[in-house]
Design a protein around this nucleic acid. Structure first.
Lengths: 342, 342
DNA sequence: TTGAAAGCGCTAACAC
DNA sequence: GTGTTAGCGCTTTCAA
């Protein structure tokens, strides 16, 4: 950590290379028109001087910061991580860089984050979910950049949406349980207004029950998000204590489903024979677990990939947005609800 | 997404509020000396005009960007996520913002990322691990900012270190197995040079075996990082096929340990009676799994917290670094190696 | 293909 | 407590 007198600037490189700063600037761009020998000289000089390009100054001048701001509810969630990976991978080589922040499933934290991000002048903004504080929504609407809401299908989108119906996922699971011959169905998680996607799944589940004429009261609150394995285990105890004859339960995510499943093992409840257990999100643990856990794959990485495509489309050509098709969640039948094989 | 003619700048706010731009600038700082009425007027005017502070321009001028660049090997790893969380939580309210990137366990990707991050003029840089390409190291050394290497104890640190000995963790587990009466011990994972921390754990494990005069050949490569549950399951099959009489196995992480454990269940291998299984990292799954998995807690979140403390200390006062004490990994005894209880 | 001039939006440093 | 001046390091724009 040697602090040299003063880090060299473009002007220093220009002087050392015997050209104007403008030529140096061009040499650092891909397409700019600089003769090949000149460019080489400049890049060599820059390297020799230890010059480091200043993106911040460049952004101030060009009004292109190269930032894409992204908010996710939790940094410790494989689903959102997959989405971010899909995004990053598809933005690679475009000069666009992610500015990542997490909201802890809190709209007010999201607002704070969005406001902070906007001061960085991002070129686009990606949000998880479609529920925001009024002020946050207002800020986003007048930000003048592409806004992409993901992981949801908001009734009144701000701009573009790359998502799927969480309610459909809940309904899909009811159908699966009913086909399997279960009629006393429970749901774990999704009780608070913080995790609106979890709430939507539960809503769809309840709707499905009502449509099938089944009891829709076996709903267990699993605490504040993030609802994980521990909460799933506790919630299963609550469920069984309250409604011992429950035949099947959907959990708001595979993590809580795994917790519930392990609690069944500890309590001596046979899965799926006495109780079928399903999750959501196609986490790795649902596949490896013994028994393996029936779940719903929401193509988390594809959400990221399509979001990247949206952004690139909009930045290249500020044309009409065009809402992409909603993604369709897919049921993965596994042992925990009577599926065969592994 | 309405794009107004031109977003207002500080000068616009100044004009509208009847003060100079400098006063507006001060009104947006915490400590600056502005009279309370003036400040209120200015903030109200700013809000009314929809003014958004430009951190990039501010950074260019003040040479304080407020960025802390952080590289982690994988974005989908609860351990690193915990470290990032510890970092973010302890940086909150300081005006410092994380610039997060992941390297995919690849030094060259790390170099690319570091170079890209440096163009953003971060005020500090946090790295996972202590192994870098020569060029990367060179860039970091002359960056003139605090550099913190984490999750490791490099022999030749660049600047500051917040880490622990991965080798000790491996040795610690050998000791545990030996105390439990096992002598035919295997290790899964950590074979490639990509995950140097995993390699160090294996090295410590092998050293421990040699010190105890035990066979140190039962090492199974689990493929390229990230080594997760699937790889752990496959590796366990390989291990048992090759050395059927193995009594205990340490896995490079809890994820591979869980995969190995579930494979034991599928293969009808009793854990821990016929084979003891241990992991590393204190992931949630190791606690909930049935049987629960013996592991090593490395205080991932504390690594982040202490890193934040380092950074704040250095930025406030560019005094001598002072290497913090290494953290001490802690063994969590669970059922999978004969621990009692849950 | 290259250069000169003029700023991008903000703040340091100094006045008053 | 507030204003003035002069940049921060780069790119836009226009000219050569």
């Amino acid at each position: 950590m040697t602090r040299p007198a003063k880090p060299p600037t473009m002007a220093d490189v220009a002087k050392a290379a015997g050209v104007s700063p403008m030529t140096v600037s061009r040499a650092f761009k891909r397409d700019a028109s600089v003769s090949e020998p000149t460019r080489r000289t400049i890049l060599e000089t820059a390297e020799r001087l230890g010059y480091i390009f200043d993106s911040m100054a460049a952004g101030l001048s060009s009004r292109r910061t190269g930032f894409v701001a992204v908010t996710i509810p939790s940094i410790n969630n494989a689903n959102f991580a997959d989405t971010v990976r899909g995004l990053v991978e598809n933005l690679r080589g475009t000069g666009l860089q992610i500015l990542l922040g997490y909201t802890d499933y809190d709209m007010h934290e999201e607002e704070r984050l969005v406001e902070q991000f906007l001061t960085r002048r991002p070129e686009a903004m990606v949000l998880t979910g479609g529920k925001h504080t009024p002020r946050c929504r207002h800020l986003l609407e007048k930000a003048g950049i592409p806004i992409i809401e993901t992981w949801d299908l908001p009734a009144d989108p701000i701009d573009q949406v790359v998502g799927f119906s969480n309610a459909d996922a809940g309904r899909m699971m009811v159908r699966h349980f009913v086909e399997r011959g279960c009629s006393r169905l429970g749901f774990i998680g999704g009780d608070t207004t913080r995790d609106t996607r979890g709430l939507d799944r539960r809503r769809g589940f309840v709707d499905g029950l009502n449509e099938a004429g089944l009891d829709a009261t076996r709903l267990v609150a699993a605490g504040l998000p993030p609802v994980s394995m521990r909460e799933g285990a506790q919630a299963l105890r609550d469920l069984i204590e309250r409604w011992p004859d429950t035949e099947a339960v959907m959990c708001v995510s595979d993590l809580s489903a795994f917790g519930a499943l392990t609690e069944c093992l500890r309590m001596g409840i046979a899965v799926p024979d006495r109780l079928a257990v399903a999750g959501f999100g196609a986490y790795e643990v649902s596949e490896l677990s013994v028994p393996s856990i029936t779940t719903i794959d929401v193509h988390a990485e594809r959400i990221g990939a399509e979001t990247a495509a949206c952004i690139l489309g909009r930045l290249d050509d500020a044309a009409a947005p065009g809402i992409p098709e909603p993604l369709v969640p897919r049921l993965l039948l596994r042992q925990s609800t009577g599926g065969v094989g592994n």
